[in-house]
Design a protein around this nucleic acid. Structure first.
Length: 114
DNA sequence: TGCTTGACATAAT
DNA sequence: CATTATGCCAAGC
């Protein structure tokens, strides 16, 4: 099948538990695309309204909504708040306990470098 | 067919 | 905290 190939991306996003959030890079990595966080965002943007994908649970690595308030960031914030995720007016999320951790990435990310 | 833009990430300045 | 630079790749024009 040559189809888009973003199916795994949507599958990963669907796996994000309610009340938690994941980063684009994380989703990209879990979907098999370690360095394509951008394409993940693109794929989510291309999602039709009402899709079975909780795109609002995906935020950037800084724990902030990447979308502009004019684009849908407002809706994303409201949806997260409705799920119990704390989001400040500035679109910031305290990733202390809201970060979805499927397995790796606990406190020490990426050995070496940095 | 080739260049530009973009829901990003990371490091450096 | 803002800006700059680089990487990665799909879609739009």
């Amino acid at each position: 099948m040559t189809g888009s190939g973003w199916a795994p991306v949507y599958a990963v996003v669907r796996r994000i538990p309610r009340g938690k959030v994941a980063t684009y890079g994380q989703v990209a990595a879990l979907a098999g695309r370690p360095r394509q966080a951008r394409q993940v965002g693109y794929a989510l943007h291309a999602l039709p309204p009402g899709a079975d994908v909780p795109w609002h649970r995906v935020v950037n690595a800084a724990g902030r909504l990447s979308l502009t308030p004019d684009s849908g960031g407002i809706e994303q914030r409201l949806r997260l708040l409705a799920e119990g995720v704390t989001v400040t007016e500035g679109g910031r999320i305290p990733m202390a306990g809201f970060r979805w951790q499927p397995a790796r990435r606990t406190v020490a990310r990426r050995p070496s470098a940095r």
